[in-house]
Each structure stands twice: as structure tokens, then as C-alpha cells.
Design a protein around this nucleic acid. Sequence first.
RNA 1: CGGGGCAUAGCGCAGUUUGGUAGCGCACCUGGCUUGGGACCAGGGGGUCGCGUGUUCGAAUCACGCUGCUCCGACCA
Length: 573
Amino acid sequence: MGVFVLRTTQLYAPTLRQTPAEAEVVSHQLMLRAGMIRKVAGGIYTYLPLAWRTLKKIEQITREEMDAAGGQEIMMPIIQPGELWEESGRWGAYGDEMMRIKDRHDREFCLGPTHEEMITSLVRDEVKSYKQLPLMLYQIQDKFRDERRPRFGLMRGREFIMKDLYSFDKDEAGMLESYQKMFDAYTKIFTRCGLKFRPVEADNGAIGGAHSHEFTVLAESGESNIVYCESCDYAASDEKAELKPIEAQAEEAQELKKVSTPDAHTIELLCKCLNVPVEKTIKAVAFQTETNEVVLTFVRGDHEVNETKVQNAVGALELRMADDDAIIAVGGCPGFMSPIGIKKGTKILVDNTAMNICNAVSGANEKDVHYTGVNPKRDFTDVEVLDIRLVQKGDPCPHCGKPLEMTRGIEAGQVFTLGTKYSEAMHATFLDENGKEKPFVMGCYGIGVSRTMAAAIEQNNDKDGIIWPRAIAPFEAVIVPINAKVPEQLEAGEKLYDELKVSGVDVLLDDRKERAGVKFKDADLIGYPVRITVGPKTVEENTVEVRIRRTGETVVCEKEKVKETVLKMLEEL
RNA sequence: CGGGGCAUAGCGCAGUUUGGUAGCGCACCUGGCUUGGGACCAGGGGGUCGCGUGUUCGAAUCACGCUGCUCCGACCA
């Protein structure tokens, strides 16, 4: 009996019978109930032993794949000097999401929301030659983002664990190679974690750069919408999904005509009022940028505007709905907007599908008046025509034209190319083969470790609790003596523990003097993949029950066959 | 940041309308009994009723201010 026995009586895992009122999503509820986490403040949690074991397993898988791809692990401080962020220009740009603090000398620091500046500064000081490239450095560390609205437990916390790797290459081709290595590594990581996921093309957002993929863990409760094609391998986040213009049925062009449409300030009312199909209408959405410039956008009545596309098209840092006053100032009329007759110089974006409509209806920039017979190609002047609509289920795939499927997921990881955005801003350069000074070509690659744990639960649970994938379960198996007060049962349990432990199974012994029902309920709630039940029959008939959490399948076997049975089951999970 | 809601024992809640000894279920402790899916009986411990100011003989309860949490929206590498 040389093996230290890990027993539930020594495990701090306070399970709750009732669900705390504050928990909205299932992962949050189950983590609280299973005694995995406790809240400290809004979006800030302590990880108790069970959660920490799972997190360490996710970290370890991540670490192994990062190392295998050529990454080197480092650890950077959470606290970062404001000056570094001044250099990159993000001290001002990052906004309220950055937790800023001052030291006793009144110098500015922040709790790192990300580490591009830190890493660029580190490498800038040491790496001077192309011979030292490529370089990939990563860390697994706490990040802090002062979210406006932390919610969903660990899914959108303020402090969370993240793996972030940064690649430095001498040129674009090298960067793309690093990017591909990381893409492959991420695929391995999420596969090894036992999760159903999809890499999707994504928008780069404020971080900059040209390529990006999100690794989305599929779950109905997820916050990201993704589309994918079953005929080809296209998959993208909804904000990224490209759309080709839809051709409209050709008709003889009618004359542009104003008609009275009292109170028809929504598309629905307009269709009723004029008895036209919604595909024949053109809808307007007005935005203002951070500099208060008005951007008018037009899409087909049954489509939605994709703000990310608009933002990228106009190069804005921020978009918000335009005030009525601002709309009027450029010659528009809220609720009755049209590109026709807007003040010259105003930015007008028209979706390429809306542009194809024949004899459409649009506003007329007058209250209670619309145009009919609108033929955008003839009537719209000084407009930019491009793809600005939000994808919908069934839209044609941009690659093969087949209808796209839509599903929801949780963004657990994202890979980006950064190019030279940070290296140029921060003068991080090296000498190339010709002795010429060049900025590093960078990429950055993140995995939300704590979010991945939450995502795993969102994807794997039932009414009784969590159903852990084997690779990231806090324990692979639990041994439950039905009655721990019967010495023979407890001893049999301990003996099995030793056997399994020695065979490399991550196992726990539930030695609590609780009734069997309590221990079964807890085992289901915590979600150990395999449960081994030791009872009177073990003592009398030498048999043990082995049960698979996910399927409920139970196998009765002889005590001597337990090891073999459990190993085989775990193999198949 | 806008709009709702909530704050009473570790958790879930009642009590607030109509001011008068702070309650229930679960959990916890003791004893008994029980032991294959969250038992039962008896006894027990635990509260500055989120904070502050006011009204009142008297405030969990009424008024005003604040703080925190939460939901919807906006926002989000």
C-alpha cells in the first residue's frame, strides 16, 4: 500500500444541492454546484481543487502542443507599465476595458489585458538578427479585462486564464508558416481535450492584421454565431462571412415616383402599406463614427447590416447608431431614408445585393414619403457598393454556392496574423541577410483556458451534472464504496484504488460516510467519466460495478478484472 | 453606459403592502435509527435584515442617499 490515497474526505469540493440564483448559464451553475469555483467579485472567481485539476490538464495539453510546434514557455508580469502602451498607441485606444492602476510615485500601470506590447519590447531588446528567427514565445497566465458586463460565470469573466503565444518572423512567408503551425497545434489541442469544435474564418477586429481564425466550441448556449458549408470546408464567424451579391429578377425599369406612406417608418409597416414583398424594399441604418462622421448604410429589407463590415469599410474605431439630429444634418429623414438626395460628401454604403433590386421601394428623405420604382444602379449616385450584410442561414456559400448552415458556439481560441503593426510602432527591428533593418513580422495566438473549461461543460452536461471528456476531467474515475462504515467495502475500495493508480488512472476514493444516494448524486454532478461501485456484492460475490457517466452503461465484473475493464473504458471515452 | 429587478443564516426563499419579540426548507452540530440514487426522529448552533442618514415610543418594514449583485440592451483582440 505504498500509494497515497486521495479521498473525498480530504478534498475541498463543497457541492450544493440548490443552484445559486446568480448563475444563468449551465456551466456556471454546474461549476458552483459541483464545488469547482466560488465567486470573489463580479467576473472574478477562485478555482477550487476540482476546477484547478481540470485547468491544469487543459494547460498541460496546450503546453505540450505549443512546445511541439516550437514554442518556448515564458512568464510575463500581470502588471505592465503605461509607457509601453503609449508606444504602441493603445494606452488611449484601449479604453475602459483596461484596468489602470498607479503606484506610490503616481506612475501609471495596468493589469495586462493582453501582452503584445510586453513581448514586443522583450524581443526588441534582445533579437537583432534574422538568424535568431523564427521565434515563438508563449505563456499561460492570468489576464484582466474590466468588462462592462461580466457574465456567464467563467465564460466572460474579468480575470481569466489565457495561453498567449507570439510569433516573430523575418518576413510574411515565415509568419504564414508560423500561423499554420499554430492553426495545426490548436486543432490538436481541442481534439485532445475531447471537444467538438470548428475553426472558422474570423474578423481581426481592433488587434489588426489580415488573417484570423476562431476556434469555436460548438454549443447552443454560445455567444458566437458561425456559418459553415456542408459541401465544401468553408466556415466563418457571422461577422466575417462573405456574401456574394444575389441577382434579382430582371424587370422593365419603372419610373422613380414618390408615394405617400403615412407612419410607415419600419419595413414591416411599409410592406403592408404598399403591399410589396420585403425583398423589394431597401432598408437604411445610420451610424456615426468616433469622430461623429455619419455613415449611411442600405441593405435589402429582409437583411441585416453587419456592423463589423461597415466598421472595416470606413476604417472606424467605433460605430454607434446615429442621432436623429445628425441624420437630418446630412439631409436624411429618420425612418424614411434614401441615398437619393443626401448631402454631397456624406459616406453612403449600399450592400451589393440591395444594389441589384429592380423597381425597389426606399425612403424619400421626407416624413411619410417613400420612393417606388427605385433602380439603384440608375438612381443611386455617389455611393460605395460592397458587401455589408450579415449572413443568414441558407445564404449561398461564397466558395461553392450551396446554402450555408448556421450554428452557435463559444470562441475558445483565436489565431491572428499581426504583421508589423506592433513592431513598427515600437521600433522592434532586426537585420536581414542584406544587413537591412526590418520590423519583425508577428502573429499572436490565444486560448482562453478557463473559458475552454466552461465551454467543455456547456457542451457536455445533462440534467444530473457535468459529463467530462476524459482528457480534462478532474479525475478519470471515482471509487464509491456503498457503505464506508463497512470495513470490508472500504478496504476493497482502497485496494482497487492502488491497482488503478499504479496503472496510471487518475482516480479518487469516495470514503465519506454518506448514504449511497448522496455519493452517486455527487459523482454524477461532478461528472467523473467512470464510477466504480464497491458494495456488499464485492465482499460476498467478489463483483464490482463499473459505470460510464455519459451513457449510464453499467458493467459488472470480477474484482480482478476491474483494472482491465476501466482501462478499456477510458480508452474508448 | 441606458432600462428593469434584487439585497433577510453557508445556499434557496418567506416576512415589507398595513411599523410591534426575525422565520421556513436545505446545509451544519449532538444523539438515536437507517444505509444500492440527495432517509427519518429528537435536540441544538448560527443573523449588526447590504451601508448611511432621517421619521417614530418603536424600523427588516416608511423616506432620502449610497453601495453591491443581477437580467435585458448597448459594448466586447
